[in-house]
C-alpha cells in the first residue's frame, strides 16, 4: 500500500519531468524549423478559428447566467449597482481564462492528441525521423506556439462576450440601467485584473497543449493499450489531465498574484 503510493507519486513526478522536457524541446525545436509559418497558421486555424463559435456561445451563456444570478443576489442588499464589477471581475479574473481553456481542450486539444496519436500509430512520426525531419519542430512546435497566440485571444473573446451576456440579462431582461453597468465595470476593472487574465491564458495554453501533444506524441509508449485503444486512451488522459491542470494552475496563479 505504502510502496504503491510511493511508486505512483514517483511516476507522477517523473511524468511531470518528462512533460517539462518535452515542452522545452517542443519550443526549442521551433528554432531552425523550416516553413514553420505555414504550419503555425494551420495550427492557429485549428485551435483558434474553428473554436470561435463554441467560445462565443459558452461565453455568452456564462455572462447571461452570471448577470441573472448576481442581480437577484445583489438586489436583496440593494446593491445591484455592483453587478457590473461582479460580473466583470469574475469573468476577467477567473471564468474567461478557465472556461475558455477547458473548451479549447475539449475541442482542439482532444483533436490534436488523436491526430498525433494516429500519426504515431501509422508510423508518420517515424517516417519524419527517417527523412531527417525533426518531428518536434514539424509537429509539436507549431501547436505550442499557436496555443500562445490562441489562448489569450480566445480568453479575450470569452470575457467580452460574457460582459455582453451580463449586460443582456441585467439591463435588457432585468431593469438595471445600462450606463450604470458599463460605467461601474470601467471603474472596477484594473489593469492588474486584465494582466492576471492574460497570464492565466498563456499558462493554461502552454500547459494544456503541451499535455495534449505529449500524450498524442507518445501514444505508443502507453502500457496496457495499443493501436486505436492507445489513441483513445491517450486522448482521454490528455483531456482529463489538462482539465485538472487548468484548475490546479488557476488556483496556484491566483494565490501567487492576488
Amino acid at each position: 500500500m505504502l510502496s504503491a503510493l510511493g511508486q505512483s507519486s514517483l511516476r507522477i513526478v517523473s511524468e511531470a519531468g518528462d512533460l517539462a522536457r518535452f515542452t522545452v524541446r517542443g519550443f526549442y525545436s521551433a528554432v531552425g524549423s523550416r516553413r514553420l509559418g505555414r504550419r503555425l497558421a494551420r495550427s492557429v486555424y485549428e485551435q483558434g478559428v474553428r473554436c470561435v463559435p463554441v467560445i462565443l456561445i459558452v461565453g455568452l451563456f456564462t455572462g447571461l447566467v452570471l448577470g441573472l444570478q448576481a442581480y437577484h443576489t445583489l438586489n436583496r442588499f440593494g446593491s445591484s449597482a455592483l453587478l457590473g464589477p461582479l460580473v466583470a471581475l469574475t469573468l476577467i479574473r477567473e471564468l474567461a481564462p478557465v472556461l475558455a481553456a477547458l473548451m479549447l481542450v475539449g475541442q482542439a486539444g482532444s483533436a490534436l492528441t488523436a491526430e498525433l496519436g494516429i500519426q504515431r500509430n501509422s508510423e508518420q512520426i517515424d517516417a519524419l525521423e527517417t527523412m531527417g525531419i525533426d518531428p518536434f519542430g514539424f509537429l509539436v512546435a507549431p501547436r505550442l506556439l499557436a496555443a500562445l497566440i490562441v489562448f489569450p485571444i480566445m480568453t479575450a473573446f470569452f470575457a467580452l462576450v460574457g460582459l455582453i451576456g451580463g449586460w443582456l440579462s441585467a439591463c435588457i431582461l432585468l431593469p438595471l440601467a445600462g450606463n450604470v453597468y458599463w460605467a461601474s465595470i470601467d471603474n472596477a476593472v484594473k489593469g492588474a485584473d486584465v494582466s492576471e487574465c492574460l497570464v492565466k491564458a498563456l499558462v493554461f495554453g502552454a500547459l494544456t497543449i503541451a499535455l495534449c501533444c505529449h500524450n498524442g506524441f507518445n501514444a505508443h509508449r502507453r502500457t496496457g493499450a495499443t493501436g486505436a485503444r492507445a489513441v483513445s486512451a491517450s486522448t482521454t488522459r490528455a483531456v482529463v489531465f489538462s482539465s485538472i491542470g487548468v484548475l490546479a494552475a488557476d488556483y496556484l496563479i491566483t494565490s501567487l498574484l492576488v
Binding site: 492557429v44 479575450a156 476593472v189
Partner: peptide, 23 residues
C-alpha cells in the same frame, strides 16, 4: 487566420485599454 488574429488583438487591446482602465 489573419482575421482571427486581428480581431483577437483588437479584443485584447479593448480589454486592456478600455475595460482595464487605460494601463
Amino acid at each position: 487566420v489573419g482575421t482571427f488574429v486581428l480581431a483577437g488583438l483588437a479584443a485584447l487591446v479593448f480589454l486592456a485599454v478600455k475595460i482595464g482602465g487605460g494601463a
